[in-house]
Design a protein around this nucleic acid. Structure first.
Lengths: 181, 181
DNA sequence: TTGCTCCTCACGTCACGTGAGGTGGC
DNA sequence: TTGCTCCTCACGTCACGTGAGGTGGC
């Protein structure tokens, strides 16, 4: 339970225990652990202008405010969702790019909508694929106790296991090599 | 409608029209167009042992069988879903790694299950995030006609628009900079 | 024959990973 | 004082992008 990436509620862990020290600030290691990233990634994001430590100690150690942890978690989730660091930067800097509230909102909405649409497309692809892979898994589960070893590996398509009523998923055809050609 | 990436049913386009020539085989360009990838990506996947042309012309042009297009579409969808090329190779080569059907099925199921679990995690993150971003979009839509320009940009948290009953989403807090600290 | 498509290097880029070698801080 | 953590280079890697310069094929 300890070392896992629980980036959706990482900030809650702050109130808990051992990571709270040095005033309310977080070290690079705290940021990494609580967000499920590596030290390198935290430093890389700082270099890429996506994060900024509130200050550094005399020894050069970075100290971040808790709000930067929330920022880092959002960045991580956006990365998992397929956005490039440039797209993430555009999103996070949108508010600053305008001089009044309504303009800032319009710019942010524009960038946000573009990325939401892209995420929806990727999400749809993932869901379709996940369904197919789960179908494939169910079919292959029967093959774990293969009843027609004589057909393996090239004639599996003739096996009754592969005669599914809703037609074989494209994924299984590729995985098991049971196309027509 | 023509040039889009419709990778979930790209193979259907084969029966249609202009891309069918040279016997039933597909050029690198056909593969790229029908799968929504670039020429470079198709060649790169061949070099990475993920694709293989059935043969080459005397001039060195690759010609692929239709089953390789299905394979390429699966690879593309797996990439969008966050798998590395190594993980994809493991999946696609699982069947070949065993000498009998039941062993092959077990190996494939093992690899498949690991990747399905990873996909489910990423999918959950994406769905949570997408919901938050859509909430954020709805809230910011009100800001497009900002009624409290005096609060922008640092005191927006005091605006009534930001007083949502179900509490502000973490994403919006980061995007609009309305944390407490 | 004219284009459009395809070819092979080969260097560039994005988002980090992975040490080497050294220092900071409770 | 001893460890564990953090620091800065700096080169490596993965998955392609992007030309340069040349040729193939209906």
């Amino acid at each position: 339970v300890a070392g896992e990436q629980v980036s959706h509620s990482a900030v809650d862990a702050l109130d808990g225990d051992e990571t709270r020290r040095r005033d309310g600030h977080l070290t690079t290691g705290d940021m990494a652990r609580l967000s499920g990233n590596t030290l390198r990634t935290v430093r890389f994001y700082e270099e890429a202008q996506l994060l900024e430590p509130e200050y550094r100690t005399d020894g050069g150690h970075r100290l971040f405010s808790p709000s930067q942890l929330e920022r880092l978690c959002l960045i991580s989730n956006l990365r998992v969702s397929g956005l490039s660091l440039e797209a993430i930067r555009d999103l996070l800097q949108a508010k600053d790019s305008a001089s009044c509230g309504s303009e800032a909102a319009k710019v942010t909405l524009d960038v946000l909508t573009t990325q939401i649409d892209a995420m929806r497309e990727r999400l749809a692809i993932m869901q379709r694929l996940l369904n197919e892979l789960e179908e494939a898994r169910a079919t292959l589960a029967q093959c774990a106790t293969c009843a027609r070893p004589d057909l393996f590996p090239d004639e599996c398509r003739q096996c009754e296991v592969m005669q599914v009523k809703e037609a074989l998923s494209a994924s299984l055809k590729v995985l098991w090599g049971v196309e027509r050609t």
